[in-house]
């Protein structure tokens, strides 16, 4: 009962959040400038050096740079802008802000950019939230063999789902070694997706760097836990003529890399596409500036947001499931 009540509240909160997307955006371009839909969408989908919650309400984020000449540089991104949030032409510390990117004024200077960008800030937020949530879930288990309560009851079925329906059937007997990674992966993607749907949120799981690193983890785990059957299948596929083996070898090698690349692209595309579609429908309101389009778009966006919520769960499921399948294939015994 508690959890259904909680769930209803949760859904209601989400709906309210979705509807406030308009507030954020309406504030964005309220000042009668020419509305550029593509620019608006890209601005929301891409990473940034500052966190613009609304037009005019900007949270500056730390810029961390390692330059060959000056060593480690740490400064607030607000130094790159004037009081009206317009990027300074002369820049700061030899760097200037140009269309969401940081550019070195000296063309030849080499540097490594480790700034806490909008997505990194969101990443930290997501990780913190996950730690808070799951530590409190874990706390519920300190009492032995008691019925789950509250937040524990909300997440326990999901944890059991990941264990029994994703990891166990795909990896097989020794699934327990991979379970912590799979659970972290699933909930990281799920939390990232859902938080990304919040108004003004960053497009964390729809960023290629994030999906790339997640796919990289799966790639490394798959190939490091691959047994001799796995490698034999790749380099000298048994049971077929030798000529075929030679032909199949490059295909198998491509397969090794195409699997994690497909993981990377799928999550990135699904989430980014969702954000772009949502923002397009909201953008229509500003293009047509009519009440009718406004109301219809709003209704559409609420529906789409619910679809996106489903996609958030599905993509977390798919990424975790394929990771499990790849690891399962790499660790299964010869047949």
């Amino acid at each position: 009962m508690v959890s259904t009540k909680f769930f209803k509240k949760f859904l209601l909160t989400l709906l309210i959040c979705f509807s406030t997307n308009f507030l954020v955006l309406s504030a964005d371009k309220a000042e009668g400038e020419d509305f550029n839909m593509g620019e608006m969408i890209m601005h929301h989908v891409l990473d940034d050096y500052q966190y613009e919650i609304m037009h005019g309400l900007v949270i500056p984020l730390p810029v961390i740079l390692y330059t060959e000449k000056n060593g480690l540089l740490i400064f607030s991104s607000s130094n790159l802008f004037d009081d009206d949030h317009v990027p300074l032409e002369e820049g700061y510390n030899g760097f200037k802000y140009y269309h969401g990117k940081l550019k070195s004024i000296d063309q030849d200077a080499s540097y490594v950019d480790l700034s806490i960008t909008k997505n990194v800030a969101f990443l930290i937020l997501t990780a913190t939230l996950m730690i808070l949530v799951f530590l409190s879930v874990a706390k519920g288990y300190s009492k032995k063999n008691s019925a789950p309560k509250g937040i524990q009851a909300l997440f326990e079925p999901v944890i059991i789902f990941v264990r029994d329906d994703i990891v166990k059937p795909n990896i097989g007997e020794n699934y327990e070694k991979y379970l912590p990674y799979m659970l972290t992966l699933f909930f990281f993607i799920f939390f990232g997706n859902v938080l990304g749907l919040m108004p003004g949120a960053a497009n964390l799981t729809g960023n290629i760097a994030v999906t790339l690193s997640l796919a990289l983890f799966t790639f490394l785990i798959t190939n490091f836990s691959g047994n001799k059957h796995y490698w034999k299948h790749i380099f000298w596929t048994p049971g077929i003529p030798i000529i075929m083996r030679v032909i199949i070898l490059p295909i198998e090698l491509i397969g090794v890399f195409s699997k994690p690349i497909s993981l990377m692209i799928r999550l990135f595309a699904a989430i980014t596409a969702g954000h772009i579609v949502l923002l397009s429908f909201i953008g229509l309101i500003f293009i047509f500036q009519s009440y009718f389009v406004g109301v219809m778009s709003a209704l559409f966006v609420v529906g789409l947001n619910l679809v996106e919520l489903m996609v958030a769960g599905i993509q977390a499921y798919v990424f975790t499931m394929f990771s499990s399948v790849y690891i399962g294939l790499a660790t299964e015994d010869g047949h």
Partner: peptide, 25 residues
Amino acid sequence: PGTGLLFWQIIIFLILLFILSKYAW
């Protein structure tokens, strides 16, 4: 992919994996 985000994502995900594995999962 942005290098900064890639770097932080790997670091933070590993920390997250470590903390959650040990204290939650």
